[in-house]
Design a binder for these strands. Structure first.
Length: 512
RNA sequence: GGUCGGUUCGUCUAGGGGUUAGGACGUAUCCCUUUCACGGAUAAAACACGGGUUCGAUUCCCGUACCGACUACCA
């Protein structure tokens, strides 16, 4: 029997999850499902200073909105529980000590001032890399330089210490990345990273490797920012003696800002003119709200579809994929290597495609709800008629109300630019007559009959309809643009159309 | 600075030793439409540069340039 495929998404709750993180979660999810494996959520909250209240719930809510589900998580524990590293704290020290015992790690007592001084000294001496490594550690205060009994004494006295990994001086570290192929680095360029912090918490490097091992993770799909520390992770697997079960790595290209300067970050907020977060995030300190895609009107499936295509493609011309179809089509081989700039126009296009694929009934719900929020009651029938007429004109569900509220409530104003050009004697004549005809009309008032009545009216006045059409639109909608006017008439009904025409006749000033 | 990674239309990308370098978004024009949009059609638009290897390189190799990530007791 082959090994069960297990992937994890391991965010740290230091703020809202941004879209790059969401894409990472999505790719992990897609691959796990594609392989018939398991997908777990692990919260990496080892940095107590950066913990942000609400961030964990935010992660949960965001992924739930998108339909990215976990087989195991803090809220759905499996046999790898617990799923928060803070709750696993007790287990890390023994692994660090194991490494110390094997000679792959050591205690270090240097204070932050001393570390700072070391870096300054090295920088002044034009050392290329002021880091704690196989050379510089010989001049620092650690269990490699201090006498054994002094180390023991310091430990026993409760003096703060960290445990650092002892990077070998000369070793070629190789890593076969699923996206990038073989990557080789020399251990001399690596530094002795801290594994256990003085507060007793592990750093990412230790906790990540230990937990991935304990949780039997088979594939690690993460952002490219982790590539430089991947060799360290490979070394740690080796030091622990876990090479045989080391997961495969795939480092994803980064999501870049549209201007091409740097990776997209949480701090970009909505400065870029579009959200960087899946759902609204309220900063509890400042009270400010950072916009989310959900609140801007993006449909979860459309957003997911868009995100999936940022760095991946199925190899053919298809672009519209449901989550199920994405799982079916997904493969790591088809993930690109280059960073990806974010293009909001394409996101909007995806949203439009998804809206058009939705049923009139579903879309009418949005219009009814939005209208109600503005104190306007709309009948189901009318809402569906409006949606039917306008569904290929909107980008977001909220557009149904904002673009068509002129149908549902009193006109607020007339477009003066149109009025000053089109509201002439002829228009007034036709409209006056048409209002009268409408009063007497007793057939079925639909787009067809509305139009023939209007045509007949204009003809009776000896006026070409085309010449006054803009004025007709203006009188009833207040605007020069909009959906098919005769369909709008049909939705409005004879009485309302006649009323609006008379109101316009009373309000607008005739030119010439 | 160092280490690592990357580079096909403005953007997302397909392709890969011989192609009119394909698609999508966006842009422009035309058609449709008594408006706008939708839809349809068309157009402009790319292999970073320099060397090799080769009969032939956008594709393979090496340099250069540029972009990016990393370089914390953050993840």
């Amino acid at each position: 029997m082959t090994k069960e495929v297990r992937l994890r998404f391991a965010p740290s709750p230091t703020g809202p999850l941004h879209i790059g993180g969401v894409r990472t979660a999505l790719y992990n999810y897609l691959f796990a499902k594609k392989m018939g494996g398991k997908f777990l959520l692990r919260i990496e909250d080892t940095d107590q200073n950066r913990f942000v209240p609400g961030a964990e719930e935010y992660i949960k809510d965001s992924l739930e909105w998108l339909g990215i589900t976990f087989d195991e998580s803090p809220w759905k524990p499996g046999d790898s529980a617990p799923y928060r590293q803070s709750e696993r704290k007790a287990s890390y020290m023994q692994y660090a000590l194991d490494l110390v015992e094997k000679g792959h790690a050591y205690y270090a007592f240097d204070t932050s001032d001393e570390l700072e001084a070391m870096r300054e000294r090295l920088t002044a001496a034009r050392m290329v890399q002021p880091q704690y490594n196989s050379i510089t550690r010989t001049q620092m205060k650690n269990s490699l330089t201090l006498p054994e009994d002094e180390v023991k004494a310091r430990l026993e006295s409760g003096e703060p210490y960290v445990i650092r990994v002892k990077i070998p001086r000369k070793e070629e570290v190789r890593l076969n990345d699923m996206i990038r192929g073989w990557i080789m680095v020399h251990s001399s360029t690596l530094d002795d990273k801290v594994l256990m912090k003085s507060d007793g918490m592990p750093t990412y490097h230790l906790a990540n490797i230990v937990d991935d091992h304990l949780m039997r993770i088979t594939h690690v799909i993460r952002g490219e920012e982790w590539l430089p520390s991947a060799p360290l992770h490979v070394l740690l697997y080796k030091f622990f003696g876990w090479e045989d079960t080391m997961p495969e790595f795939a480092h994803l290209p980064l999501l870049l800002k549209p201007d091409g300067n740097g990776k997209l970050s949480k701090r970009d907020g909505d400065k870029l003119g579009f959200p960087v977060f899946p759902i609204n995030w309220i900063n509890q300190e400042t009270g400010e709200t950072a916009a989310g895609f959900r609140e801007q009107g993006y449909l979860p499936d459309a957003f997911l579809n868009f995100l999936a295509f940022l760095g991946w493609n199925p190899g053919d011309d298809r672009e519209i994929f449901s989550l199920e179809e994405l799982i079916e089509a997904f493969s790591i081989e088809r993930i690109g290597k280059a960073g990806t700039k974010f293009d909001i126009a394409k996101a909007k296009w995806f949203n439009e495609q998804y809206i058009r694929a939705m049923s009139t009934t579903e879309l009418a719900d949005f219009l009814i709800a939005d209208a109600k929020a503005e104190g306007v009651e709309v009948s189901r029938e009318k809402a569906e008629a409006i949606v039917q007429l306008t569904k290929d004109r909107v980008t977001f569900p909220a557009d149904f109300w904002s673009q068509n509220k002129f149908i549902l409530q009193k006109l607020e104003a007339f477009d003066q630019a149109i009025a000053s050009k089109k509201w002439n004697q002829e228009a007034v004549k036709v409209l006056t007559a048409y209002a009268g005809e409408l009063d007497q009309f007793d057939g079925t008032f639909d787009a067809g009959s509305a139009k023939s009545l209007l045509e007949a009216t204009a003809e009776a006045q000896g006026i070409k309809l085309g010449k006054v059409m803009q004025a007709v639109r203006l009188s009833v909608t207040g605007s020069g643009v909009g959906p098919d006017l005769m369909e709008v008439f049909a939705i409005l009904g004879t009485k309302e159309v006649a009323n609006r025409i008379r109101f316009a006749l009373d309000t607008l000033e005739i030119i010439d």
